[in-house]
């Protein structure tokens, strides 16, 4: 049940040593609900300093981390704006909307984050949970990567998931808590996960695989070959009327690393996205409608690893002009091979 607190936890966990009101304030002596809840702070860790009383080091780096600053949202879209529009965006859309998605300590360790008004309550009787990806990561990242990872969108689950791995096995706690650097976006993070951390190039299972890895090394991303099935394109939910709503593998030139073929994901921003805020996106065409993306449905063997012809003959998943969204960015053309 949503807010029932486990009594045993209260007696044994040092977090409760100073009583509920140490974090939640309110009136612990109040007799009625209204009296007890007067002045109560529902989400104490929204103020990170509440946790910082004891966890000073983590809070200091977390304040600069992307899960807290959500800087990736802002920096990912701002090249589309004029200078004047950037100011409007920062003051209105970003601060009033995007920033509401920041994760507090409690969102990952106490209560599952509330997403689109759906509140599943405490993760486990108010225990301070070290990690439970299915009740934390899965809620905010449940639109795309998590269901891809677990196979909930169909197809086989990611090979790492099938072998008992979960989010934090690649995305370490250190990465989640930040390293003290205020990055512009997740791709800039110094110690971000990399396939090569575990999969050394020289350890390919067969000579054929070793040759394939050597030939494609810089020119093709790992996911371009090892993504198993279609992954969510944002058109499925966000592009509005006329959007084609189907998962797909899309291969094209990496907009952030020109010259590399990679998996692309259609992103939800269209020309009218910020119209209500009075932002026309004067420089909309500065960015494409696709970003490089690593789908989380990795397999060792796919139709691309089995048969060169999938790419070199049929160009099966390659982005084509006829597949581009209507009235999309002119920059999309640069992604076509």
């Amino acid at each position: 049940m949503g807010y029932v607190v486990d009594k045993e936890t209260i007696e044994t966990d040092p977090h409760f040593e100073y009583g509920c009101s140490f974090c939640h304030e309110g009136d612990a002596d109040g007799v009625t609900k209204a009296e007890a809840h007067k002045g109560m702070v529902k989400r104490p860790s929204d103020n990170l300093d509440t946790c910082g009383v004891c966890h000073e080091g983590i809070v200091a780096t977390y304040k600069l981390s992307l899960h807290y600053t959500t800087a990736g949202f802002k920096n990912g879209v701002s090249p589309r704006f004029s200078q004047e529009e950037k100011t409007v965006f920062d003051e209105t859309v970003f601060e009033q909307s995007c920033r509401s998605c920041h994760a507090s300590c409690g969102d990952c360790h106490v209560q599952s984050p509330v997403v689109s008004g759906v509140n599943t309550g405490l993760m486990d009787g108010h225990k301070f949970v070290r990690k439970d990806e299915s009740k934390s990561c899965a809620l905010c990242h449940g639109g795309r990567v998590y269901p891809e990872f677990t196979g909930d969108y169909g197809g086989r689950p990611d090979v790492h998931y099938r072998n008992g791995m979960s989010c934090l096995d690649c995305h370490s706690a250190e990465q989640m808590h930040g390293d003290g650097v205020a990055y512009d976006g997740r791709r800039d993070v110094e110690n971000k996960p990399s396939c090569l951390e575990c999969h050394e190039k020289s350890l390919s299972a067969t000579q054929e695989a070793e040759e394939a890895h050597a030939i494609h090394e810089e020119a093709v991303s790992c996911s371009a070959c090892h993504t198993a099935t279609g992954y969510r394109q944002c058109s499925s939910c966000h592009l509005g009327e006329g959007a084609t709503s189907s998962p797909a593998i899309v291969l094209g030139d990496n907009p952030r690393k020109p010259g590399q073929l990679t998996t692309l994901r259609l992103i939800p921003t269209v020309r009218t996205t910020f119209e209500k805020a009075g932002i026309r996106q004067d420089n909309f065409d500065a960015l494409p409608n696709y970003w490089d993306s690593i789908p989380h449905n990795i397999q060792k063997r796919t139709d691309r690893t089995r048969d060169c012809n999938t790419c070199h003959g049929e160009s099966l998943y390659f982005l084509e002009e006829s597949k581009l969204p209507k009235d999309g960015s002119t920059k999309n053309l640069e992604l076509i091979r």
Binding site: K7, I10, C20, K33, A36, H126
Partner: peptide, 25 residues
């Protein structure tokens, strides 16, 4: 003495009892 106080606070009277919480929420 604090943990004892925490355990006896009115918060736990309700939040430690699933039946009461069901009637309140």
């Amino acid at each position: 003495a604090v943990p004892a106080i925490a355990g006896e606070s009115s918060c736990i009277d309700c939040h430690g009892n699933a039946d009461i919480m069901k009637t309140l929420v």
